[in-house]
């Protein structure tokens, strides 16, 4: 089934066009890495797909036009992890993760057994159960990031859009997160994560969308998208492209291209 369909998406920020007509379709079971240089429009693409920015073009979420569904219904289909790691008040980690259940609760209703189970799973997956009683605002950057990812997981939506989820994580947690995302995809969900680490993107994503200056330059399997020529023209870098022992793709950026 199609989880998200974007066609001819155009966005202008402050009168300046940022996205020039992007189209792609995301199906169940896909783990898409959204890559591109700084300022390419990755975050704008994620936010506009959710309807958080005024845009032109059509966005369909779970088969329905995004303009026709309420914020609450949308939250049942798509979870979103913003790039800014904002935690306004020193609430406990467990409370913060439980906010992921917001869209499923009406009025003053409390958490039921299903809610608790999802919250517990999300905390266990992000390895934050040990400090669930601590104030979330007092954690280290990487711990905060894991808590916020757990919040998005607790939302239990079929599609997850994550803006630079690996930023600030140590290598072990970066790999654990990428592996978790591909597990989610294997369960039949969809994940779109904007990434700067091309090595991680190449190794774990089932599909890469390369964005540059507001247009999609390439869209496909990692080995088709990440060619030496593209890395040179889009990123301005030379990279070593190879293969790992288990047949995975290896990308190691080496140097900036002298122009």
């Amino acid at each position: 089934m199609t989880l998200l369909s974007v066609s001819d998406l155009r966005v202008s920020l402050g009168g300046k066009p940022v996205l020039h007509g992007l189209s792609f379709v995301l199906r169940e079971g896909e783990f898409v890495g959204l890559i591109g240089p700084n300022g390419a429009g990755k975050s704008t693409l994620l936010r506009a797909s959710l309807g958080l920015l005024p845009s032109e073009g059509a966005v369909t979420i779970a088969g329905r036009p995004s303009t026709a569904i309420s914020a609450r219904q949308r939250a049942l289909h798509v979870a979103y992890l913003p790039q800014e790691r904002e935690i306004g008040w020193p609430v406990s980690v467990e409370t913060l993760v439980s906010l992921g259940r917001t869209a499923r609760k009406r009025g003053f209703a409390g958490l039921d057994a299903t809610d608790r189970a999802r919250i517990g799973e999300a905390m266990a997956r992000m390895e934050i159960t040990d400090f669930r009683r601590r104030a979330a605002s007092e954690l280290s950057g990487g711990e905060k990031a894991r808590v916020l990812i757990a919040r998005a997981l607790a939302q239990d939506a079929p599609l997850l859009l994550a803006d630079e989820p690996t930023a600030g994580l140590d290598p072990a947690h970066q790999i654990a997160l990428m592996s978790l995302f591909s597990e989610l995809a294997a369960e039949g969900r969809g994940v779109v994560a904007s990434l700067h680490d091309l090595g991680l993107a190449a190794r774990w994503c089932s599909r890469l969308i390369l964005v540059d200056r507001g247009v999609i330059v390439a869209d496909g399997a990692p080995k088709d998208v990440l060619t030496a020529e593209r890395l040179r023209t889009v990123y301005g870098i030379d990279a070593h492209l190879g293969e790992t022992e288990d047949g995975g793709m290896l990308v190691v950026p080496l140097d900036v291209v002298r122009r």
């Binding site: 936010r47 959710l50 958080l52 309420s70 914020a71 609450r72 219904q73 949308r74 939250a75 049942l76 798509v78 979870a79 979103y80 992890l81 913003p82 800014e84 904002e86 935690i87 306004g88 008040w89 609430v91 913060l96 906010l99 992921g100 917001t102 869209a103 916020l148 919040r151 939302q155």
Partner: peptide
Amino acid sequence: TLGEDAAASMG
């Protein structure tokens, strides 16, 4: 608590 974008995405 998680910011305006996150809140909007949460319904």
